[in-house]
Amino acid sequence: MELFSKKNKETFLSPLWLNNPVAVQVLGICSALAVTSKLEPALVMGLSVTIIVAFANVVISLLRNTIPNRIRIIVQLVVVAALVTIVSQVLKAFAYDVSVQLSVYVGLIITNCILMGRLEAFAMTNKPWDSFLDGLGSGLGYALILVIVGFFRELLGSGTLLNFQIIPECLYDCGYMNNGLMVLPPMALIIVACVIWFQRAKNPDLQEKSN
């Protein structure tokens, strides 16, 4: 078995753009709204989801042949919740600053639809290594959208990026104002919609056929 066969590459790359979990599959929208008013939490959330989804995929994929069909969703949830709890405990012990930053987002990871989606759709029927790549790709695809949204919301809403002032003071003196609407949740939806629009305009294949 090749580690990076053509199929594996596609497993990893397609969720990044053409089959993006947020923009195309429209999963995980809720957290995309909640954590993107600044770039930093968006980055942290994107990375955490990537790590958790990749490892949950591996665990479920290893267990896939033993899981009783009727309780498979429960098993998936238990694995995800256990993983998230362990990661959060370890962070509290060894990287306290990071865990303070993550605070409530850690709990949000468990409820992220991308996790359940990937476990159910991919890890239940594929080998561990493929599942790992799929999890990594999906997580990064999710992170990509979060970062794009967080970038515009923080830049236009607060005039900063990662808390560094980007828009110069002199512009404010000339009457420029931060757009307060950018910080509020509706703008996240509008920016996600713009990303989807841009993506579909570039890739006509993604457009739904109108009858």
Binding site: K38, E40, V183
Partner: peptide, 8 residues
């Protein structure tokens, strides 16, 4: 704070 809105 525990979970106030970032940016606000």
């Amino acid at each position: 704070h525990e979970g106030e809105t970032p940016g606000l």
